Simulated scan of single mutants.
Amino acid sequence: MAGKFELYKDKSDQFRFRLKAGNGEVIAVGEAYSSKSGALNGIESIRKNAAEAALDDQTD
């Protein structure tokens, strides 16, 4: 089963999203957005940029 984005409103009536893996585990969460379109843009940004994102390991 493929992962999915869930778009929802939090207790403060802000729009948020989370990305769930195929097994239902939350693997990423978005910040709070004042508009639904802002949250949808955040999702699209992840879809566009994540595939080619480099890893910047700052633990060393």
Rank of each mutant, 00 (worst) to 15 (best):
A39D: 03
V29H: 09
T59P: 00
A53Q: 09
S34M: 03
V26G: 01
A51R: 13
I46L: 11
S45Y: 07
N41D: 04
A53P: 04
K4A: 13
K48I: 02
K48W: 00
D56R: 12
T59H: 11
N49V: 01
M1T: 15
G30M: 03
L55R: 10
A21N: 15
D60S: 12
E6I: 15
I46R: 11
Y8R: 13
S34A: 09
S12P: 00
A39T: 08
S34W: 00
K11G: 08
G22N: 14
S45T: 13
G38A: 05
A53H: 06
D56G: 12
I46W: 12
E31M: 11
K9F: 04
G42I: 02
A32W: 02
L55S: 11
A51W: 00
E6V: 15
M1W: 09
A39L: 02
A50V: 10
K36N: 05
F5S: 03
K36D: 02
A21H: 14
S34P: 01
E6N: 15
Y8L: 12
S45R: 12
A21L: 10
V29C: 09
S37M: 05
S12A: 13
E52F: 06
A28Y: 03
A51V: 07
A54Y: 04
L7P: 12
Q14M: 13
S12K: 13
Y8F: 15
R16A: 02
N41R: 12
V29A: 11
G30I: 07
A21F: 05
V26N: 03
D60N: 14
L55D: 08
V29E: 11
K36Y: 07
L19T: 01
E25C: 01
D57V: 01
R47P: 00
S45E: 03
G3E: 03
L7W: 04
K4C: 14
V29R: 14
L7M: 09
Q58W: 10
S35W: 01
E44W: 08
R16M: 10
K20Q: 09
I43K: 05
